[in-house]
């Protein structure tokens, strides 16, 4: 059993890695094609405001030096070769290599995204359980109505509302940034960071909470209508015990799968949430890069988020199989 299991797991891992590489190549081709066909003037973007003083000979010289006149596929292969060597290019906006920018900004975003992710997962699952267990009653209606409202509210609008209420009117939370303004980096305490993190995290969690609530609610209702719950009732199981012993695990599988596959939406939401709160993370960096036509950074971020979303989905599959062994069985059958 064990000697069979290890190579199978390894094979599965290798298969996933192969799929990730294929996906990355596809994303690289698509984003490069977009870049080539976009009206972005790479020289102007690089030179900035001084572009007016750039003579046509100088411009031609730069274009020749950068290889901008080469055929697109040659430029693509050259770029791909650089990527494989770990050279993602230089971000003119941040005056740093692309990989360093992504690393720094992602670390700043990590706390924000992780907190928002946990918040939406825990709160969404809890509310979904409650709504499903009290289906059709007032509690259920309030929660469902709230979930639909959140699902249809744009992130930046929720962020503005929260800013208005908690930062401007009540003065409980700071208006912007990840750390207090005008305080040396060494003097910034953990409490300061948390204080600046709460509002953006709550805003960002709004993106993910509604789907988790609604899917969990549906899973709970289905489980409660199932034969196994009828049998548990006939055995004397009631109320909280019924939910805890016979429903939670059944409802957890779809919620976990959804939560892990929502990393893409989470990143999309962070672009808006970080902009509203001037939070210096990867989302805000994406906006800055786009506004400054910083092509190397944009391409790098596209590839990085591909890995992020792929990893989320892969972990989601594993966790789902752990909670619901029937899913593991189906996976094994498919890969055979």
């Amino acid at each position: 059993m064990l000697t069979e299991g290890v190579p199978a797991a390894l094979r599965g891992f290798a298969g996933r890695l192969g799929r990730l590489v294929l996906l990355l190549v596809a994303v690289a081709v698509a984003s490069f094609a977009l870049m080539v066909n976009s009206p972005v003037d790479l020289v102007a973007a690089y030179v900035g405001a001084d572009v007016a003083s750039l003579g046509p000979e100088q411009r031609a010289l730069i274009e020749e030096r950068w290889g901008l006149n080469d055929p697109a596929h040659e430029r693509f292969l050259a770029w791909l070769g650089n990527l494989v060597r770990g050279d993602f290019g230089f971000s003119a906006t941040f005056n740093q290599p692309v990989l360093e920018v992504i690393g720094d900004k992602f670390l700043a975003s990590l706390a924000l995204m992780a907190l928002a992710w946990l918040l939406s997962g825990v709160l969404g699952f809890g509310l979904g359980l409650l709504a499903g267990a009290r289906q059709g009653r007032a509690t259920d209606r309030v929660i469902t109505w709230w979930a639909y409202t959140l699902a249809s509210a744009p992130t930046f609008w929720v962020g503005l509302l929260l800013l208005y209420v908690f930062a401007v009117s009540l003065n409980w939370a700071p208006v912007c940034c990840a750390v207090p303004i005008g305080v040396p980096a060494a003097d910034v305490t953990l409490l300061d960071r948390l204080h600046h993190l709460v509002l953006p995290a709550v805003t960002l969690s709004v993106v993910g909470i509604a789907p988790v609530v609604l899917h969990t609610r549906q899973a709970v209702i289905e489980a409660l209508a199932g034969d196994h719950v009828a049998f548990a009732r006939a055995q004397g199981e009631r109320g909280f015990g019924l939910i805890r012993h016979r429903v939670v695990r059944n409802a957890a599988a779809p919620a976990l799968l959804l939560q892990f596959s929502s990393l893409g939406e989470l990143f999309g939401g962070s672009v808006l949430a970080e902009q509203v709160f001037s939070y210096p993370g990867l989302g805000a960096a994406t906006t800055t890069a786009a506004l400054n036509q910083d092509v190397p950074l944009l391409l790098g971020i596209a590839l990085f988020t591909t890995v992020l979303v792929f990893t989320g989905n892969a972990i989601g599959d594993r966790v789902h199989a752990g909670v619901d062994p029937r899913a593991a069985l189906a996976d094994a059958r498919r890969s055979r």
């Binding site: 199932g226 034969d227 196994h228 006939a234 055995q235 004397g236 695990r249 059944n250 619901d324």
Partner: peptide, 30 residues
């Protein structure tokens, strides 16, 4: 209801009456 599972028992026969995501030992203990 108070006697369900003690004095009065339901005896089903189909697998759907078992919780699909819980090992049977735990269901027996419950």
């Amino acid at each position: 209801r108070a006697r369900a599972g003690r004095g009065i028992a339901l005896l089903p026969q189909s697998v759907t009456f078992l919780d699909p995501v819980t090992p049977v030992g735990r269901q027996l203990r419950r």
